[in-house]
Nucleic acid binder design. Structure first.
Lengths: 209, 209
DNA sequence: ACAGATACGCTACGGGTCGTAGCGTAAGGA
DNA sequence: TCCTTACGCTACGACCCGTAGCGTATCTGT
């Protein structure tokens, strides 16, 4: 979402076009697919969306913020189906996340905006709220299910529980991203199975299944 | 290294200045620190290095290749001291890698070039040879030591061993990068300890130490 | 010593993108 | 209806890109 959206005290005057918002974000994703992050320009997005370039700058500060918003909605597709076991749930979320990274839009944009965010605190916060939170939600959900099944112990200390959840999230998301984008090798069912085994059983046990 | 360096059949004419190479790479790192990836320009690097802009283009195709070479040498500092146990070795390599990601040059450049490499096969290969290989070396070295100590079983099938090493590498490097750059929280000794415990013992055992 | 070959510094250039200003027009709200 | 804001359009200076052209510098082979 652009910079407006919430907590608007009902200003007077002509309201912003919601159709333009949708067209711009759609055009941004299309431009990412065709041109990739580095060759995407504000002018190209504007012409694809059938909108003046100035309209883009009225809503987004620049390319970084625009692309974050354009890609964020794709992470809403992530869901964690209840497959009955922690192992199956982890494998499912890994494969879903991998499928998202297969798409050329996310593939070219995700690491780029993260790189930009290393020098832009506000952008980092935007990424956290729009993208990271949507992923972390699945980890929390999966842990809750596993605890209800008795597969994981219930941690009484809330802070310790939060730290562990953060750790697990970094391990899962980091491993998938690194496999897909750095090693540039497929995250298929076999890899997801071996990764899940390693995550749940550890290095010592995982070497001899 | 620039595009020349190896397998040179002793051409005639004036040779390229090795001092210029060093000055350019040093200037590139300095520019990364001051300006960051996105605002770094070839002209700025050239003037910092006291070199004509055309000299840069004679050696590197563009910003991507230049920055990869400039950052790659920093990964040579990575070493795996033998601390006597797999746990200690893993923690040490995690903290070393984290220290590298603390530096503003690598922080801003690493994810950026990875993002660019998603649309540039040649660049991906350059990153693999210059950066990823230097990291993966440590994983192979650590496993060999652990096997010698009897902490890890020796896998007879070479291909299975290679696949497992790749998996572990993606988990370690991915988790550290994700923690440092995406979650943007410190990779300190405590995190390294908890991560190593998770990696070695698995999720079930790690939750109740 | 001389000639050939290549690197270097410098200048200049067309092409592209950026982000903004200014203006007239369109579309809601009081 | 009046007020306010959004929109499309044009134009603009600033910056960076990547290359061409030229004279000079440095090394190799004869």
């Amino acid at each position: 979402m652009p910079s407006h959206s919430l907590t608007e005290p009902a200003r007077s005057g002509r309201p912003r076009s919601a159709a333009a918002d949708a067209a711009i974000l759609e055009a941004t994703r299309a431009s990412l697919v065709d041109l990739g992050w580095s060759k995407l320009t504000m002018g190209d997005v504007a012409s694809r969306a059938g909108v003046a370039k100035t309209t883009l700058y009225r809503r987004w500060a620049g390319k970084n913020e625009l692309v974050v918003d354009a890609v964020a909605v794709l992470f809403d597709e992530l869901e964690l189906p209840d497959l009955g076991s922690l192992t199956a749930d982890v494998q499912a979320v890994v494969l879903q996340f991998a499928a998202l990274l297969e798409r050329p839009e996310t593939r070219t944009a995700l690491m780029a905006v993260v790189a930009e965010s290393t020098r832009d605190e506000a952008l980092r916060g935007r990424i956290r709220n729009s993208i990271v939170a949507r992923q972390k939600r699945l980890v929390l959900q999966g842990r809750e299910r596993a605890q209800r099944r008795g597969e994981l112990p219930v941690e009484p200390d809330a802070e310790v529980a939060a730290r562990t959840a953060d750790l697990i999230f970094d391990v899962i998301a980091g491993a998938v991203v690194h496999r897909a984008l750095v090693s540039a090798e497929p995250v298929d069912a076999d890899w997801a199975r071996r990764f899940t085994l390693l995550l749940l059983k550890g290095l010592g046990s995982a070497a001899s299944p």
